[in-house]
């Protein structure tokens, strides 16, 4: 008697899983269906694994060594993408730059995502006066000229390094996310499960982060994938202007920054052009995958 019940339960769960595939499964199905997204994902994986595994076959110490006999060499068999002003191999720097840019892009996205998520959840969960004050503050943050503020902070901060840079960027890049999460949280708080939980006396923080958040997770994942691309763009852009990653940590923007000199733009294209194109390709790929993820999160838009 008991056995049949468990069997039925198991069967039920299995059937339910089949009918309601997890979000990750839906994303995967959507990507498989969209050949461009699949291609982008594969290209991205190839690019990133080459960049992250490059220390295995590229001598990193050689990349920091200045060799004046070998400066500004055009691409050749020894230096696939030529050399820069210090005779350093551009291809090796490109790989390290891609790695740093991507890692830092992820770090900023995660930190800014957490700030935005907490802010939006708190604002939306409490609603009313709290929401009103928090939204006024958010509106104010949104009118600040972000690029200028980041540049000013980068310049005046006392001990400037990669971590402070990530923090400065995160402080200004959570705003859109907070607004998005808040609008969804406002709808969610009216639902019965939240009310039931409140009646049972669950602490507010627990409701917010363990009951409300899982229901918003697909929204967060979609938003994070799409902002990852733009965060990489902002980071490389700031590094290009000279206000991004400190000199010890080369980014793709560091290589592109060579192009601030007209002579290099024109005559030594191999130094900056590959990095610029790599940024472009990475952004396009991440965005394409992001669009597929976005479609997967909304049943009406799905292609698969």
């Amino acid at each position: 008697m008991k056995d049949t019940v468990t069997l039925n339960e198991k069967e039920l769960i299995a059937r339910e899983k089949l009918n309601n595939p997890s979000f990750m499964k839906t994303i995967w199905r959507e990507i498989l269906h969209d050949k461009m997204a699949l291609g982008s994902l594969i290209l991205l994986i190839i690019l990133l694994s080459t960049a992250y595994l490059s220390p295995l076959f590229i001598d990193q110490a050689a990349l920091t060594r200045v060799n004046f006999l070998n400066t500004w060499k055009p691409p050749s068999a020894a230096n696939w993408l030529g050399t820069d002003d210090g005779g350093r191999d551009v291809f090796g720097q490109l790989m390290i730059g891609a790695r740093n840019s991507f890692t830092i892009g992820i770090a900023i996205t995660v930190i800014a995502g957490m700030i935005g998520l907490s802010y939006g959840l708190i604002s939306g969960f409490y609603g009313g006066g709290v929401d009103n004050i928090m939204m006024r503050f958010l509106e104010f943050m949104m009118v600040l000229p972000t690029t200028m503020f980041i540049i000013v902070f980068v310049t005046i901060i006392p001990n400037y390094n990669v971590f402070t840079f990530i923090l400065i960027m995160s402080v200004f890049l959570w705003l859109g996310k907070a607004r998005l999460i808040r609008s969804r949280a406002l709808q969610e708080r009216e639902l019965d499960y939240i009310n039931a939980s409140k009646t049972l006396g669950t602490p507010s923080w627990k409701i917010m982060f363990f009951e409300m958040f899982p229901n918003l997770s697909s929204l967060v994942i979609v938003n994070m994938t799409l902002t990852l691309a733009s965060n990489i763009g902002i980071e490389t852009g700031l590094t290009f202007l000279g206000f991004g990653l400190p000199a010890g940590t080369p980014s793709l923007g560091t290589l592109v920054a060579f192009a601030r000199n007209p002579d290099i733009v024109k005559n030594k294209w191999w130094v900056w052009l590959p990095a610029a194109l790599l940024i472009l390709v990475m952004m396009l790929c991440i965005n394409y995958v992001g669009q597929a993820v976005k479609r997967a999160s909304d049943a009406r838009q799905r292609l698969a």
């Binding site: 763009g233 202007l241 592109v256 952004m283 396009l284």
Partner: peptide
């Protein structure tokens, strides 16, 4: 156009 950074 959406994906391309201005400076690039």
């Amino acid at each position: 156009a959406f994906a391309t950074p201005t400076f690039v």
